[in-house]
Design a binder for these strands. Structure first.
Lengths: 168, 168
DNA sequence: TCCAAACCCTTGGATGTCCTAGTATATTGC
DNA sequence: GCAATATACTAGGACATCCAAGGGTTTGGA
């Protein structure tokens, strides 16, 4: 990692906002920018852990989702909805996972439009191993205090509900 | 936007983690996944606002950074460090902004290795206009309660400092 | 019954990010 | 002064994401 900056660039941006008369939105700007940067840091950690497995985060998420599905299979559109990514992103991920022998496509028994993604035994094993390392190397050392974790889950959960992610 | 899911997929993932005996890391897993998803939602809102200006978030960030710099110019490496992105990402952004006439490259007066990025008058004007809309459409309607904004800034600020982003 | 609308997936194109490697310029050490 | 090292930027490649468009399948109303 590069040398830390002497000053927090997001705090500086907030000061710049205030200096330009945008004090009313300076704080949310800083919070949103911090979310962007935090996501970048976390994604880099996750991808670093997954790289030895030949996985990216997008592919891992799909494998993990399938491993929790009954029968280890899901329709493409269902996966797209649950992962909340564009259908073409799922197509892309399945192409690569299929090439690696971790999943396979099979036709839906009753709906000819639908394609099922099915976990292979290799895919299931790899998902398990990758999850174990992610748990110990990333989630188990997140750098968030326990009460901060709860705060984040609450704040971001409310935000996601209001954004229309889910209604429950 | 698609129909909201009946259940929160991240809460479900957390339950799956707990069912598989990973209760000790289920909460941080949920928090990290929520940050990923929140970033995705916010980025989509920002890019939607910037699209009419012909800007992406990456290009806007660079324009905004330059607009706060003295003289409206910065070395490429400085911009890379402050935006905390890879130098090649800055090269990419500058290529496109230069093509749009919003910035221009000029040689550093004393260091022949360094290239300065300079804001053009058009770039400065566009940055101002885009910021005004971002402020009113995104930052001013973030969907976060005021006290949650403060919580986020604190929690994520600590995280970023511990991650080595800055030392101040 | 039959056709239009809705739905599902894939292809192709644009963008952004990172990594590796390569070129050019500065700085440091002998 | 010159060679070795460090720094700055760019080129090319791999991935992921989205959007727009296209072709196949189902469904539902006329």
């Amino acid at each position: 990692m590069p040398t830390p900056l002497p000053r927090d660039p997001i705090a500086d941006a907030r000061l710049n906002w205030e200096r330009h008369g945008w004090s009313d939105v300076a704080a949310p700007m800083a919070a949103i920018t911090a979310i962007m940067r935090t996501q970048q840091i976390l994604l880099a950690r996750i991808e670093g852990v997954l790289k030895p497995f030949g996985l990216t985060f997008a592919r891992y998420e799909l494998l993990a989702l399938l491993s929790f599905a009954r029968g280890g299979a899901l329709p493409m559109n269902k996966a797209s909805a649950l992962l909340q990514v564009h259908p073409t992103s799922v197509t892309n991920a399945v192409d690569r996972l299929e090439g690696a022998g971790l999943v396979l496509r099979s036709p839906h028994p009753t709906d000819g439009r639908t394609t099922l993604i099915e976990l292979t035994p290799e895919g299931r094993t790899l998902a398990k191993r990758a999850t174990a390392v992610l748990n110990s190397e990333v989630f188990g050392q997140s750098g968030f205090a326990a009460q901060d974790v709860d705060q984040l889950i609450g704040i971001l959960g409310t935000f996601r509900r209001n954004a229309g992610d889910f209604s429950g």
